[in-house]
Amino acid sequence: MRYLAMRFVDDGLFGEIPEELRFYIDYEAIARDLAVDYSETEIAGTRLIYRCA
């Protein structure tokens, strides 16, 4: 989930965040929030994240 949180921030889903502020982002907290709507599993060594809604 942490990887998904980082991708969402990088892709701009939380708006434009200046580089100097990215050190203060709590990716673990975002990951916990994402775990409500997303789930992850591993199949044949490949990790998959999918939306449960």
Rank of each mutant, 00 (worst) to 15 (best):
M1Y: 09
M1F: 08
M1W: 07
R2D: 05
R2P: 01
R2F: 03
Y3L: 12
Y3I: 11
Y3C: 01
L4H: 10
L4P: 11
L4E: 06
A5E: 03
A5G: 09
M6G: 09
M6N: 06
M6D: 02
M6W: 05
M6A: 10
R7Y: 11
R7N: 11
R7P: 00
F8Q: 13
V9W: 05
V9I: 14
D10M: 14
D11G: 03
D11K: 15
D11Q: 15
D11T: 06
G12Q: 05
G12R: 09
G12T: 01
L13A: 03
L13C: 10
L13M: 11
L13H: 13
F14A: 03
F14P: 09
F14D: 00
F14V: 07
G15V: 05
G15K: 08
G15P: 12
G15T: 05
I17R: 07
I17Y: 09
I17E: 03
I17T: 11
I17V: 15
I17H: 06
I17C: 08
I17N: 02
E19M: 00
E19A: 14
E20M: 03
E20K: 08
L21D: 12
R22N: 02
R22H: 08
Y24S: 13
Y24Q: 14
I25N: 11
I25K: 07
I25R: 08
I25W: 07
I25T: 10
I25V: 15
D26W: 04
Y27P: 09
Y27N: 02
E28K: 13
E28W: 07
A29P: 00
A29H: 02
I30Y: 05
I30T: 06
A31V: 08
A31D: 11
R32K: 15
D33Y: 12
D33R: 15
D33A: 15
D33L: 14
L34Y: 07
A35N: 14
A35D: 15
A35G: 14
V36W: 03
V36H: 13
Y38T: 08
S39E: 15
S39I: 00
S39L: 03
E40K: 14
T41V: 02
T41E: 10
E42V: 12
E42W: 02
E42D: 01
I43A: 01
I43N: 00
A44M: 10
A44T: 01
A44I: 03
G45E: 05
G45Q: 07
G45N: 02
T46M: 11
T46F: 10
T46C: 06
R47T: 09
R47H: 04
L48C: 04
L48P: 02
Y50W: 08
Y50D: 01
Y50S: 05
R51A: 02
R51F: 10
R51I: 02
R51H: 11
C52R: 15
C52S: 13
C52A: 05
C52H: 08
A53R: 11
A53I: 09
A53W: 09
